[in-house]
Design a protein around this nucleic acid. Structure first.
Lengths: 312, 312
DNA sequence: AACGATCCATAACGAGGGGTTATCGATCTG
DNA sequence: CAGATCGATAACCCCTCGTTATGGATCGTT
């Protein structure tokens, strides 16, 4: 008799295949799918050719210089979600199980914390919990919070100015936060300035000065506190680079309002002083995690350690 | 920063792994799982070692000369069902889609049909539906029906004697059958016999003859019709081989009751004649398929073709 | 119309994953 | 106690599946 098709199992559908087809569906091209999955474009193209050979039907067909999924390809996409969700659920559960045994904490924190808080946290974890591995992502607070929601980080060190609520992101109520302390906002100015001798500076006295603005969130805060004190700052320069900010102050190009952690990280250059404001402006540094009824013991221990450090 | 665990995707859980762990759970041993999956025992053992290396936890632990799944192994088993069901659903849907385009029909039929009905069916399919591939399983009716229920065949050509109902197998009501015609049961005897001149033979006239029985189902039928006619046949020989049956009749060793299809397949040897019974005994040849609301067009077309042939 | 960028397909190549057989040690059963 | 059974490991090798290189087709811009 004539040759027959192999049994269903021999179609050898596997999860890798479904991830590939799913990525093509999402991204619209083989090249983009390859990038998303971490392969070269020919790797994906050849995988599709081999699959098409096994099942005897095309999975994609050419439309100009791009491809479109065929009916067979769409069949695979429809089932890919169930397969990848179940595999990811299994991987997550294994990771939790592994966490019970091995310990892993993924930490995200803003740049000034990188050089100040984070080394201390990691150092203390290394002493108290030698089996714990810490991975670190440097991210400004909005991105750090997003990485929590995306389950890409376990903990985030963020800051928040008085009066600000949590970012109005979807799922914001899912966070649990702990205050780690206040980070003073300091006026940075040349020591030759008439105000440099004061213990604290009334911002209104600097209304006629040129200002050097920092990061977008810092700049927003600067505008807010100056408006509170009755003036709009004349911003001559903008840079995220705190070192550059201080150099510009040293060069007499203006004054700035910087967080205390930035000065902990980088000493003031000669001829530059830092003074608190007369209103005692500050921001609160916080630790955030997704609310959970069952955290891994390692994560709970890490939260306790960081909170303990924050209180000292 | 310290090294971190790979992202979840790098845990590289794949469907093959889940099938393996599922098979171990079901069968109780690595050896049995290997057999079930078609691999050697070391193949499965080594797969588990590599997996354990990737995820950093044991999947099985030794208990005497057998193994037991660890907590991690049980995590995988719990997710395996969802993964394998989705993969199998995808494969099934692909197979259906494949049937729509390429055409595949898996036919099962009893031996005398092999040499008579089946070549005609396949030949006509080849003409009318060149894209259709036909696979063929030669099987007596009980086994052919089982292969339908097991989704190993799409169609079965079977025979049924008057008064017989469908086999009392689970799911028997799931079948749909079409009569293809009657297959006369013929008395095969030496032409030297006093009865050879008759147009039809009363079985009771052969009550004193020795009988040569055929296949188990044929033998059962022989016993039934002789009992109906008031005697018990003296069965001197038994063989499934119709050619052998006819040679024995030729040699004067006895008489037989054979289906007409058998005689279509193999001409009578010299000195042997075939006559219907006076009661007109016959069996009905039927086509059977699982009842379905949505058959593939190819399968529907094949059923129509076979039914059309059966009416001619 | 020409040119450069982008996308996909294919060829050639090589690494190593993953299977095999052979074998050994431990366990269990008769 | 001997033989059967199960799992682990070693050695070997095939071929899957990735890479880079390259070419053809398509599309957008000048």
């Amino acid at each position: 008799m004539t040759l027959s098709l192999p049994p269903l199992a021999a179609l050898e559908l596997d999860s890798h295949t479904l991830r590939i087809v799913q990525a093509i569906d999402r991204s619209g091209s083989i090249t983009a799918a390859a990038r998303a999955l971490g392969y070269s474009q020919p790797a994906i193209s050849q995988h599709l050719r081999r699959l098409e050979g096994r099942i005897g039907m095309p999975i994609v067909h050419r439309v100009g210089r791009r491809v479109r999924l065929t009916d067979a390809g769409l069949v695979l996409v429809r089932h890919a979600r169930a397969v990848t969700l179940a595999l990811d659920a299994a991987a997550n559960e294994l990771a939790e199980l592994s966490g019970l045994h091995a310990g892993r904490v993924r930490l995200a924190a803003f740049p000034t914390a990188s050089a100040t808080l984070v080394p201390g946290i990691v150092g203390e974890l290394a002493i108290d919990h030698p089996g714990v591995e810490v991975s670190y992502l440097e991210a400004e607070p909005p991105e750090a919070l997003r990485s929590l929601h995306a389950h890409e980080s376990d903990l985030a060190v963020v800051f928040r100015y008085p009066g600000e609520s949590e970012a109005p992101e979807e799922g914001a109520g899912a966070l649990e936060t702990w205050d780690l302390g206040r980070d003073e906002m300091l006026v940075v100015l040349g020591e030759g300035s008439g105000l440099a001798a004061s213990d604290a500076i009334d911002l209104a006295d600097l209304a006629e000065e040129r200002w050097i603005a920092g990061c977008p969130q810092c700049r927003g805060r600067l505008l807010a506190v100056c408006e509170r004190d009755g003036f709009v700052p004349r911003i001559g320069y903008e840079t995220d680079n705190f070192v550059a900010v201080m150099r510009m102050v040293q060069a007499g190009l203006g004054v700035a309002l910087l967080p205390g952690l930035a000065l902990e990280a980088t000493p003031l250059p000669a001829g530059v002083v830092a003074r608190p404001t007369t209103r005692g402006d500050y921001r609160t540094v916080q630790l955030a995690a997704l609310r959970s009824e069952r955290r891994s013991p390692v994560l709970s221990a890490t939260i306790d350690l960081i909170r303990g450090r924050g209180r000292r």
